[in-house]
Amino acid sequence: MKIKMKRLGALALTAILALSASISSFNLIDSTRVNTSFGKVGYFAPISVMRLVEKGNRGTIDPDLSYASERLLDSALTLKKAEYGIDKLLTPADTVLLDKVEAEIKHLAFTSRDMHVLNGLALPPTIDSLMEASGNRYAVAMVGSGYSRTRLNFSNKQRIRVAKEIVLQGNTFGAKYPEKAVSIVHALLLDSKENKVVYYRQNRMPEREPTNANIVTTQVNSLLVGLFMNN
């Protein structure tokens, strides 16, 4: 019986690794080919929506985690923006308009993610007006999402138990298991002339803290290369 349980545990761990590999490689890319000679590009300040899981498997939006993630995203983007011709920060002075811009950017990112295939999602009015007023045809937007767990909420024992259930049910495709943390960065290229999103991609790193500076920097760099070098 002990041998069987050990084998089951090994199978469970194998399933976890397989799922991690498949999830981390998931990307969404618009089929639209963006001209690499679009010149100077504006950008919006990064936004983050981070959750902290304290009880069960559901988290609540945590302002401190979200703020920390935004600062890391901004630092990583600032270090690389000159290299890719990203120059002007597009931000309204009015706080009400700023709230609208942030809400619209989150809507674009999460809708693009849920669509799985981007088909020229139209720009909302506030973003479009701000880009046209700035004289920038193109602008980059980045949104962070993901979550972290408290130490009391997560343990290897719990992880193995759920993985065993997945193996016993014979359902590993699309199965969910408790990840300690997930760091996700969404990148979009917005076109005010065409009035649409012309590029979307996300970088998802399971089992990585969204407030780890090295992880966030790696994600941002990867997305910028995909946007400016591989298009």
Rank of each mutant, 00 (worst) to 15 (best):
K157G: 14
L118S: 12
E132R: 15
M205W: 01
K193R: 09
D99I: 12
G170T: 08
F110C: 14
A122I: 14
R113G: 08
G146K: 05
V185H: 01
E179V: 15
P178D: 12
N203G: 00
K176G: 13
P124R: 15
V198K: 05
K180E: 09
Q169A: 09
E179R: 15
Q169M: 03
V182S: 07
S112W: 06
H107M: 03
V96A: 11
A109F: 00
S148G: 13
V182Q: 05
V197W: 03
Y147K: 12
P178V: 15
A181D: 09
R204V: 04
R201P: 00
Q202T: 09
P178A: 14
E179W: 07
T172L: 04
V143T: 02
Q202V: 02
Q202I: 01
A139P: 01
A122E: 13
K157V: 15
M205K: 01
G120R: 02
Y199R: 14
E132V: 14
E194I: 11
G174T: 06
V182E: 06
V198A: 10
G146E: 04
V182C: 03
G170V: 06
G146M: 02
I105C: 12
K180R: 14
L108G: 09
V117Y: 01
K176V: 14
R201V: 11
M115C: 11
R113H: 06
T172H: 01
V185F: 01
V185N: 03
